[in-house]
Amino acid sequence: MSSPIAHWDPEYQRRAATIVERYPDVRSAVMPLLYLASLHHGHVTEEAMEEVAALTGLTAAQVQSVASFYTMYKRERVGRYLVSVCTSISCFLRGADEVLAAVEGATGVVDGETDDEGLFTVEHVECIGACGGAPALQVNYEFVEGVTPAKAAELCRWLRDARPEVVLGDEMQLLFGGRPSFDPGAPEPEGAIAPVPAFGPYGSARPGTGGGR
């Protein structure tokens, strides 16, 4: 019997192994493995859920039950740039609806959809913890705060033209952001390489960093 993830690239396979090691109980690895699988497949496909099931000894139905509970496990195709506009109360008070409309306009993608090309997915999201920098959005979960409708549209056009390989929060904030929730301090070298949060073992621009524990 070959491993269900034998077709994953070796780097992901190594990460899968370290993820399982970090928990006293293998079931706890379901969530990080779902991120890893969606990094490999582009989103949480049925195949991805079956792989995670095989890795954790759960049934695919159990994995689906977990995956579908959380909004960040995308079970539909996602664009290269996932633009998430916060429309919760603080951002709403500061004009979030207009920002969302501007993003829809600039990308040609309506809330909840992905374009044919697979470049953009646009969604409105609940509070992302950037209320002090409202209105705020995230591209592949990297923050851009204090945006205006015009700046948000500009950001989308820039993503389309520049097509950055790595999405860097600091870069976007500098070019298109306004007042952030707080002074960010030192610049941050890491960014996202896919519409999966860029954290250690999952979607970091520096694969293999962090998350080893």
């Binding site: 049934t59 039950s65 579908s68 909004t71």
Partner: peptide, 9 residues
Amino acid sequence: DPLIEFVDR
């Protein structure tokens, strides 16, 4: 045999 489960939220 957990083959039937809650889906979504």
